[in-house]
Simulated scan of single mutants.
Amino acid sequence: MAGTSVPSAPSPGAAPSFTATTFLLLRHGETPLTAQQRFSGSGAGDPPLSERGRRQAEQAAAALAARGDVAAVVSSPLARCRQTAAAVADRLGVEVGIAADLRETDFGRWDGLTFAEVRARFPAEMAAWLAEPSVAPPGGESFAEAAARVSRARDELLAAFQGRTVLLVSHVTPIKTLVRLALGAPDAALFRMHLDPAALSTVAYYGDGNASLRSFNDTAHLRS
Rank of each mutant, 00 (worst) to 15 (best):
R80G: 03
P186T: 00
R149C: 06
S8Y: 10
D101P: 01
A44Y: 12
L113P: 01
T22W: 10
P48V: 13
V118F: 03
A148I: 02
D106C: 12
C81K: 12
K176N: 05
R164S: 14
V74Q: 02
R27V: 07
E156W: 00
V203A: 08
V6L: 14
P48F: 14
E145W: 02
D111I: 06
A127L: 03
E145I: 04
T219M: 13
E141Y: 06
T202D: 00
L181K: 10
S40Y: 12
A185Y: 06
A127P: 06
M126N: 09
L49A: 09
P47Q: 11
A87C: 07
V172G: 14
A127N: 03
A159I: 10
V172R: 13
P7M: 06
L113A: 08
A185M: 08
S142P: 00
R119Q: 15
P138D: 09
F122E: 04
T21I: 00
R80Y: 11
V179C: 03
L130M: 11
A89G: 03
V172A: 12
W129K: 00
V179R: 01
T114R: 15
D46I: 15
T31P: 07
R80W: 14
P123I: 08
G3H: 04
L49R: 13
P12K: 15
E30Y: 13
P32H: 14
L102S: 09
T31F: 14
T22F: 11
G97I: 04
A116F: 04
A89V: 04
L130S: 06
T202G: 01
T31D: 08
G45M: 15
S11K: 07
G140F: 02
V150K: 00
A199W: 11
